[in-house]
Amino acid sequence: MDGARGRKRRGETSGVGPHIAWGPTLACKGARRLDKTHLRFVGHEAASSVLHCFVLDGSASMLASLAQAKGWLLDSFNRLARERSDVALIRFGGDRAEVLFGPAVPRWWNERWIEPIGGGGGTPLPAGVAAATRLLDQARRRHASQVRVLWVLTDGRLHDIPSRPSAADRVVVVDCERGRITLGGSERLALAWGAECVHLDEIARYELGTEQ
Results as ranks from 00 to 15, higher is better:
3 G>I: 14
3 G>L: 14
6 G>E: 09
7 R>D: 02
8 K>M: 04
9 R>C: 06
14 S>V: 01
15 G>S: 10
16 V>Q: 13
19 H>G: 09
21 A>C: 00
22 W>H: 04
24 P>G: 01
25 T>I: 11
28 C>G: 01
34 L>C: 01
37 T>I: 09
39 L>A: 05
42 V>N: 06
44 H>M: 05
50 V>C: 12
51 L>V: 06
52 H>K: 07
53 C>A: 12
53 C>N: 10
58 G>I: 00
58 G>N: 12
63 L>C: 03
69 A>R: 14
72 W>G: 00
73 L>A: 02
75 D>I: 05
75 D>N: 12
76 S>H: 11
77 F>N: 03
77 F>Y: 01
80 L>M: 09
83 E>H: 15
83 E>Y: 08
84 R>A: 05
86 D>H: 12
86 D>M: 11
87 V>Q: 10
89 L>V: 02
90 I>H: 02
97 A>H: 05
97 A>Q: 07
102 G>Q: 04
105 V>S: 09
106 P>W: 04
106 P>N: 11
107 R>N: 00
110 N>C: 06
111 E>I: 14
116 P>E: 00
117 I>P: 05
117 I>N: 06
127 A>L: 13
127 A>N: 08
131 A>T: 10
132 A>G: 10
133 T>R: 15
135 L>Q: 09
136 L>Y: 02
138 Q>F: 00
138 Q>T: 15
140 R>N: 01
141 R>M: 10
141 R>V: 07
144 A>T: 14
148 R>K: 15
148 R>D: 00
157 R>I: 05
160 D>L: 12
161 I>G: 05
164 R>F: 00
165 P>Y: 07
167 A>M: 07
172 V>S: 00
175 D>L: 01
176 C>K: 14
178 R>H: 08
179 G>A: 04
181 I>F: 11
185 G>K: 08
186 S>I: 09
187 E>T: 14
193 W>S: 05
196 E>H: 09
196 E>F: 07
200 L>K: 14
202 E>P: 00
203 I>T: 07
205 R>N: 08
205 R>I: 00
206 Y>N: 02
210 T>H: 15
212 Q>H: 13
